[in-house]
């Protein structure tokens, strides 16, 4: 019961943070709230027995992500401009998606139900055999590095790709060739060397 209450409190705090983030126009404050959001969700991950995930979320969401966001802010803008666009279409899209998801949850196994297919098909195999076959205590590591080691290779490649991507984008010359400020006609002059 107490766990449930903690869960609920955390979820409500998450919601409040998210709503605040919609409203905040000060981007620094928003990034800070994003960090808070990550830390809150990390706590929730702990409550849901996912300590590894919590650790990672805290390190990524609370650490790296915040640092990068702040760095990006320093390079871009500190405030969000007033909203000019129509909010109804996005709202409609969001509500439709949400409604579909809510509809879909109705047939989901109950939260924590040990008889759910999730817990009865593949997972028990890992829990039963990992200590013998892999010989390490952390099931998550066993699956991550061995049973699904190829996914983790992929994950490392994703990180590597991000590295390549960011270096490609940010190591090149500061301005695009042929860019001038203000209205201009596109393309042809970019190569003529006039600009």
């Amino acid at each position: 019961m107490i766990m449930t209450l903690i869960d609920l409190a955390l979820i409500l705090a998450l919601l409040a943070t998210a709503v605040m983030m919609i409203r905040l126009r000060n981007l620094f404050a928003m990034v800070m709230l994003a960090g808070v959001f990550s830390l809150l969700s990390a706590s929730l991950f702990v409550a849901l027995d996912a300590v590894d995930v919590a650790f990672t979320e805290a390190a990524v969401g609370g650490g790296i992500s915040t640092v990068l966001m702040l760095g990006a802010l320093a390079l871009t803008a500190r405030h969000e401009a007033p909203i000019r666009r129509n909010q109804l279409v996005p709202l409609g899209v969001t509500i439709a998606t949400g409604a579909a998801l809510l509809y879909g949850t109705a047939d989901l196994p109950l939260f924590g139900d040990p008889a759910a297919p999730v817990h009865t098909h593949v997972a028990p195999y890992y829990l039963a055999t990992a200590p013998k076959e892999i010989g390490i205590d952390n099931f998550v590591t066993a699956i991550l590095a061995s049973y699904r080691g190829f996914d983790t290779l992929g994950e490392t490649m994703v990180v590597f790709t991000a590295g390549v991507a960011v270096l490609f984008l940010l190591r090149s010359a500061r301005r695009s060739r042929g860019e001038v400020s203000g209205p201009r006609d596109d393309a042809p002059d970019a190569r003529s060397g006039k600009v």
Binding site: D52, F55, D137, N138, T141
Partner: peptide, 8 residues
Amino acid sequence: HGDHGAGG
């Protein structure tokens, strides 16, 4: 220590 506790 990822083998035994959280982390990796």
